[in-house]
Amino acid sequence: MSASADELARWDSVIPGIVRVPLRRRALGLLPGALVVLLTLWVFIHLGLDPLVIWAGLGRLGWLLGFMLPPAHGGLLGVFIWAMAETLAMALLATVFAAVLAIPFGLLCTRSTGTLAPVTFAARRLSDVVRGVDPLVWALIFVNVVGLGPFAGILALTLHNTGDLAKLYSEAIENIEKRQLDGIRASAGSPFAVMRLGALPQILPVLTSQALYYFESNTRSATIIGAVGAGGIGLLLTERIRLYRWDEVAFLILMILAAVFVIDAVSQRLRIVLIEGRKAPLVA
């Protein structure tokens, strides 16, 4: 049941433009889109995204992917495993150090604990700067200062995470529900009891969950900061790529994927046990 041409024309004369959009208006509507397309084309040309170059590169990529199969450890399995252990150690230590250091730092960033306003301001800006700089940059800086190796990586990740966690902690502290504290005070709880039974149960799940999340994230970061010399599997990966040992590169990438997968699964499990398992049982 379609409308006749007459009827459509009638409606167009009643409300101009409802059926047939005038060409000029249609062109105007397309204008922003066309501008974006042109701009994007310019960006692609400016960055050297030349189809011919990409085509040639894809050829080389295919050639090099061919050498990746089958992945092999080239007799260096022990070295690879040690490097992976270094990576995981960096991630774990950095998470623990940052989780601890962020507590006093986070308190300094919090207004509701009675910290002086100028102190809060300074602490917050410091945390902004520290976490605004990528872990990879901190790693490069620490490699320059304390030398090559995982120690530089630990310092870099710790510093970056401390900034991040301090912000999250201070938000968690500021979001405490005051009524729970009042309740314990009203039942004659000591200041210690107010902290232990009123504040901590509200903050701890957030802290635990964030620490676990940072452990996952640090495992990912720790695999790559080796590229600037900060130890771990990234160092090996960069070296193997420079040497064109593609089968070993593929093996290392698979190891990274497996490690990230396992750490995510473990952390997921711990999150359930530590947070869900803490809740008191419901008894009718």
Partner: peptide, 28 residues
């Protein structure tokens, strides 16, 4: 899954070899 689990930097290291030094490798 594969493309989100491998860090960008790893792709970049390999692409620099395949596509040469420059922003193209980074963009890809």
């Amino acid at each position: 899954e594969f493309s989100r689990s491998v860090p960008e930097l790893v792709f970049a290291l390999i692409f620099v070899v395949a596509f040469g030094v420059g922003p193209l490798a980074g963009v890809l």
